[in-house]
Design a protein around this nucleic acid. Structure first.
Lengths: 149, 149
DNA sequence: CAGTATCCTACGTGATACTG
DNA sequence: CAGTATCACGTAGGATACTG
């Protein structure tokens, strides 16, 4: 019995997890957002070579990262536009962890707007006119793609 | 060789993944946000009983969900406040999946503000004065908790 | 209905050696 | 430096039977 795939589920969360939900993958993406580009540098996070190879291959296949040759022997891995759009996912996870598993010495990573140097707003759902919404202020409606038949 | 734990890493993402990064866990949370409360209903997502049991136990241990007895034999699982605060994570993943793995028939799930019935704004980072920020407009700074020593 | 308990096995992981 | 290849191992996952 193989592991069940999430890919067939008609659900954005399930299908997304099928791509980025594997062990180590989100840590690789975290590193990429921090500027890591090279194979040996990604390795520092702690996974073994074969795992990194396989994860990077998947990310490239999914067009989340792009592999660019540098000089014939080396390559760099860069986030594509599709990959960059995962930033809210990483930011949301980071904020939750900051809140619930804080380092006693204080916050570990601060996200600031480059232009102003000011910290960004906490990740949250917002109304279309910019009010932060609490979880219980949001309802879920089925859209046209909600059925498979 | 056991699987390496992420828990010791001084990183909010790694520590959060240690809790909610296991297979099936985010799908259980997705169901919970949609109103699922009962063991047998969570099962419908497709995992087997022993896995669901173990995942729910972890979520309760981490105070992400709360197990409440109903009538001596049945129980319900409800998201705690800590669990509800994972909503931005789920929303971000959903939005990304909606964009990059769309169902050809249209969007599957629409999140609306209860009060107005209007769709919420797309998940994004925002500046502290409410402007949506693109990934490359954000910089990362080390905070006081960034070092372990 | 809500679990608990077993059993089996494929797969993911980790380590390491090796290559260009 | 950037992988590829191989191997051994544990365990996560799945199926299912059983209990209160």
């Amino acid at each position: 019995m193989k592991y069940k795939s999430f890919a067939h589920m008609n659900c954005s969360i399930a299908q997304t997890l099928e791509i980025i939900g594997e062990r180590w993958t989100l840590l690789i993406l975290r590193d990429a957002f921090r500027g890591v580009r090279r194979f040996e540098d990604f390795l520092q996070t702690g996974m073994s070579r074969n795992v990194l190879t396989e994860r990077l291959k998947n990310l490239v296949d999914q067009e989340i990262m792009d592999k660019q040759p540098i000089d014939g022997k080396s390559s760099e891995y860069l986030l594509t536009k599709k990959g960059l759009q995962l930033q809210p996912v990483l930011l949301s996870i980071t904020h939750w962890g900051d809140k619930h598993m804080a380092n006693p010495k204080g916050i570990r990573t601060i996200f600031v707007e480059k232009k102003t140097g000011k910290p960004i707003a906490p990740m949250s759902a917002y109304s279309n006119d910019g009010r932060a919404l609490k979880p219980n202020e949001i309802a879920i409606k089925a859209g046209p793609g909600s059925t498979t038949s």
